[in-house]
Measured scan of single mutants.
Amino acid sequence: MPGGGPEMDDYMETLKDEEDALWENVECNRHMLSRYINPAKLTPYLRQCKVIDEQDEDEVLNAPMLPSKINRAGRLLDILHTKGQRGYVVFLESLEFYYPELYKLVTGKEPTRRFSTIVVEEGHEGLTHFLMNEVIKLQQQMKAKDLQRCELLARLRQLEDEKKQMTLTRVELLTFQERYYKMKEERDSYNDELVKVKDDNYNLAMRYAQLSEEKNMAVMRSRDLQLEIDQLKHRLNKMEEECKLERNQSLKLKNDIENRPKKEQVLELERENEMLKTKNQELQSIIQAGKRSLPDSDKAILDILEHDRKEALEDRQELVNRIYNLQEEARQAEELRDKYLEEKEDLELKCSTLGKDCEMYKHRMNTVMLQLEEVERERDQAFHSRDEAQTQYSQCLIEKDKYRKQIRELEEKNDEMRIEMVRREACIVNLESKLRRLSKDSNNLDQSLPRNLPVTIISQDFGDASPRTNGQEADDSSTSEESPEDSKYFLPYHPPQRRMNLKGIQLQRAKS
């Protein structure tokens, strides 16, 4: 015994090295194993092979420090690593049964499904019991997946119906949107047309105001020219009257000059006056001389005659003075006559000038009245044309509004008919989907599995289990394997941990 101590140590070291070499393959693929292994699927088989106990299973599945599946799978690998070579062998058998691809990844061999460990530990009855539990578990999982698949199909059909409904609603909204954009385009076109009409109206108003201003300026210029013409006519008439007055005065002077006595007659009258003065002096001298030589009687007679002569001279002087006064009065009367005649001529000139001015103003008033009548006639014609244009424009607008209203009513009726057609199509689609759903539900009910399987069917299934373990590994792997896509769409199922009653199965096998 003492001599065998070193050999035992060498043997233990060799086993430990082999164990480390075995687990080295697992550690190399630890990331892939932790990512894809579900500990809840492996722990029943590991407990059946007595590699882990209930406490280890509870620690792996329910520990609060292991929230994710990767953490739980890593903890399970750590626990199996502590179990040595047996933990490695049982772990590979569980991978061979549940995850053939991972088994091939770790060992590089094809899975054979021999279950040597569980046969050694529990015997064939334990293997049968384990396989029966796994089959029931798989059936329950398949039923749950079928239910989930039916629910998802129903949800899918519902979503398809909602999608069709949303599509129809979208078509309806597109119809309304198209109608909205069309009405918006019509409104924009009408606004552009309105702005264009306003611009045209403004341009016409500006043109009309400009023409009116030009016409008023032309009328004012015409009036100024007419006033200048009238003033020139007035000056012409005044000059004609002055010329006529000057002509009359010149004719009067000419007549006075023609009626003036001649120079010879004046000289002859002056000679006669001198001769008479000479004779008068001679007679006076004779009379003076006679007075001195005459007697007293003759002197008395001469005195009487002288007195008579003096009286006659006085009378004559009075007559001469009277004649002079009369001549002066006649001259003054002639001057007054000439003055009055001049005033008369001036008044006649003024009267004729005023008459011509009156005629001029009368003509001017007639011209202004004619212009006013023409302006009123043009204004009435413009008003009439404007009223006709406004009436025609309003009539066109009324007809346009009428046609637009008819078009809008027809478009609304068309839209309502399209919407009604879309709604009826939606109703038809809904009815078809309901009919299809009812038909599929009836087919699913016919094809669904019963909840409680008979014992004979279970025994028959387990009677055929042994050949399947040898020759149909691919079928078992397809039913027991969970793909990543299934984990996305289906909830994980945790079967209840219970042991099955095998009395009925044993009785059935005894009868057979």
Results as ranks from 00 to 15, higher is better:
G4E: 13
G4R: 13
G5R: 13
G5H: 09
G5C: 13
P6Q: 14
E7Y: 13
E7P: 09
M8Q: 10
M8F: 07
M8H: 12
M8Y: 13
D10K: 10
D10G: 13
Y11D: 04
Y11E: 12
Y11A: 15
Y11W: 13
M12K: 14
M12L: 09
M12W: 04
M12I: 11
E13P: 13
E13N: 11
E13Q: 07
T14A: 10
T14P: 10
T14L: 03
T14Y: 12
T14M: 09
T14I: 00
L15Y: 11
L15C: 10
L15G: 10
E18R: 11
E18V: 15
E18M: 07
E19I: 15
E19Q: 11
D20H: 14
D20W: 11
D20F: 07
D20I: 09
A21V: 06
A21L: 05
L22G: 05
L22R: 05
L22E: 14
L22F: 09
W23G: 04
W23K: 00
W23Q: 02
E24T: 01
E24Q: 07
E24D: 04
E24V: 10
E24Y: 13
N25T: 06
N25F: 04
N25D: 13
N25E: 14
N25V: 04
V26R: 04
N29S: 07
N29E: 00
R30V: 00
R30L: 00
R30N: 04
R30G: 00
H31P: 02
H31I: 02
H31W: 11
M32Y: 07
M32H: 10
M32K: 10
M32P: 04
M32F: 03
L33T: 03
L33Y: 01
S34M: 01
R35S: 05
Y36V: 14
Y36E: 03
Y36A: 13
I37Q: 03
I37T: 03
I37C: 03
N38Y: 06
N38P: 02
N38Q: 09
N38D: 01
P39K: 01
K41I: 02
K41M: 07
L42H: 10
T43C: 03
T43R: 09
P44H: 06
P44Y: 09
P44L: 04
P44M: 09
P44E: 02
P44A: 06
P44K: 07
Y45M: 12
Y45F: 10
L46G: 10
L46N: 07
R47N: 09
R47S: 07
R47K: 08
Q48P: 05
C49L: 10
K50C: 08
V51I: 12
I52K: 06
I52C: 09
I52Q: 07
D53F: 03
D53H: 15
E54G: 09
Q55C: 10
Q55I: 13
D56Y: 11
D56G: 05
D56S: 08
D56T: 04
D56E: 10
E57C: 05
E57N: 02
E57Q: 04
E57V: 10
E57H: 06
D58I: 10
D58A: 12
D58P: 01
E59P: 01
L61K: 02
L61Q: 06
A63D: 06
A63L: 02
A63M: 06
P64T: 06
P64L: 05
P64I: 04
P64D: 00
M65D: 01
M65T: 09
M65V: 03
L66V: 02
P67Q: 12
P67T: 13
P67L: 11
P67C: 12
P67S: 08
S68G: 05
S68T: 12
S68E: 05
K69C: 03
K69M: 06
K69G: 03
I70G: 01
I70P: 04
I70T: 06
N71T: 11
N71P: 03
R72S: 02
A73R: 03
A73P: 02
R75D: 01
R75C: 04
L76P: 04
L76Q: 06
L76S: 01
L77H: 00
L77V: 07
L77D: 01
I79F: 06
I79Y: 04
L80P: 01
L80M: 07
L80C: 06
L80S: 01
L80N: 03
T82K: 11
T82R: 07
K83H: 06
K83D: 03
K83L: 02
K83Y: 05
K83I: 02
G84E: 04
G84Q: 09
G84K: 08
Q85W: 06
Q85I: 01
Q85S: 12
G87F: 03
G87Y: 00
G87S: 03
Y88D: 02
V89D: 14
V89A: 10
V89T: 04
F91A: 00
F91N: 03
F91I: 01
F91Y: 06
L92W: 07
L92A: 05
E93C: 00
S94Q: 00
S94Y: 09
L95M: 14
L95Q: 02
E96R: 01
E96V: 06
F97L: 00
Y98H: 11
Y98L: 14
Y103D: 00
Y103P: 00
V106E: 00
T107P: 02
K109W: 00
K109L: 06
E110K: 05
E110S: 03
P111M: 00
P111F: 03
T112V: 13
R113G: 15
R114L: 01
R114K: 04
F115P: 15
S116E: 08
S116H: 06
S116N: 03
I118W: 15
V119I: 02
V120E: 07
V120G: 05
E121P: 11
E121A: 07
E122P: 15
E122R: 05
E122H: 06
E122W: 05
G123Q: 15
H124V: 13
H124A: 14
H124C: 15
G126W: 15
G126E: 15
L127A: 06
L127R: 05
L127D: 03
L127E: 06
L127H: 14
T128F: 12
T128A: 09
H129A: 11
F130I: 15
L131Q: 05
L131A: 10
L131E: 08
L131D: 08
M132W: 14
M132V: 04
N133E: 01
V135S: 07
V135P: 01
V135Y: 01
V135M: 09
I136S: 01
I136N: 12
L138K: 11
Q139F: 04
Q139W: 14
Q139E: 09
Q140W: 03
Q141D: 13
Q141T: 13
Q141H: 13
Q141W: 14
Q141R: 12
Q141M: 14
M142K: 09
M142Q: 13
M142S: 11
K143W: 09
K143I: 10
K145M: 09
K145T: 09
K145P: 06
D146E: 12
D146Q: 13
D146A: 10
